[in-house]
Design a protein around this nucleic acid. Sequence first.
DNA 1: CGATTCTTTGAAAACAGTCAATCTGTGTGG
DNA 2: CCACACAGATTGACTGTTTTCAAAGAATCG
Lengths: 193, 193
Amino acid sequence: MFGPLKQYISSKTTLTEADYARIEAVCIYKKLRKRQYLLQEGDVWKYNCFIVKGLLRFYNLDDNGKENIISFAREDGWTGDRASLLTGEPSKNNIDAIEDTELILITKNNFDVLCREIPALNDLVNAILNKSFITSQSRIHAAIAFTAEQKYLDFIQKSPDLAMRVPQAMIASYLGITPETLSRVRKESAKKH
Amino acid sequence: MFGPLKQYISSKTTLTEADYARIEAVCIYKKLRKRQYLLQEGDVWKYNCFIVKGLLRFYNLDDNGKENIISFAREDGWTGDRASLLTGEPSKNNIDAIEDTELILITKNNFDVLCREIPALNDLVNAILNKSFITSQSRIHAAIAFTAEQKYLDFIQKSPDLAMRVPQAMIASYLGITPETLSRVRKESAKKH
DNA sequence: CGATTCTTTGAAAACAGTCAATCTGTGTGG
DNA sequence: CCACACAGATTGACTGTTTTCAAAGAATCG
């Protein structure tokens, strides 16, 4: 089960076998069935989470019960609630599995120790965070500048794989439009090609 | 001129005087007049930028020349184009001064060396990046989940200082609505209180 | 299959955008 | 110091997009 994470890390940096052993020693394996929660509003999030296989969504619920999907995460990606992790406060968000999912959890404490012991791992984590930030800036741009159709076209261009795997209603939520609007937008843009 | 940065750092972590001297040695001071560019589309961004005094906006232009403001940055904050910094590609964004501004630039290369020499500085930078990411997630949430009025109320609640200093048309751009809509929203919400 | 969930469609209403005109405040040059 | 110009903000009428609500049509899963 550690294989995929090892492979992921080795594709980004070079560690010794001893380093890998240290990491493997603190890994917690977990399987989620479709629809199962990884994090529920009110829980405190304490992990770094690597996805071996599957697909998750990170979202919150507003007062009317509407789901607002902030991000998706799939195999070779990471997820978690950084706000709750940082502050130790209960999370205002939810994470659940869109598909059956396998993941590796490492507690914050263990992870911090690893990062101190293995500088290359620390650098890798910072690079990932940096990229996540850049991605989220581009998402902000799309959200404030694009029409419904532009948002959808931008999404399928940037994430064609997700466009295939994620139910439409969830894509709509991610884009900040209603499922009905997304359905109509798809119909229109199909007509054009 | 180094004072404000030193004070900022010392409020977040503890460094030796030698560390501060090392940092000061690579600082580049710069003043911008209102409306002056710090970064223009097409330039490659190579710095970390600390704002001593003033206010800047980070934005891009779409095909119709419409400005989309991704973020503001004020004294004791940081700005720059992380995408261009990471890839070395020309920036697709602009940064300019909303008020007369004083700032400190440190080139990426110098900054990377400092971070390697001063672990506490490296940790500080990661903490800042982490917080920026959390902030941008909350901005995504507002952008996809809120109405024009909710966006405005959320903004004045989270950034009352910016609400005072930033021209309304720029706030509108930041919120992803038109200046006219913002004006009407303000009128309505004034009526309610 | 049958039940449930997801998607599509239609019609009406709400919301935000556009365009043009007016108003306000600020700063500048005569 | 005044008059004027200019940029920013407001207002009104209109248009267009997106949402809402309700219903019907696919698709999926046990």
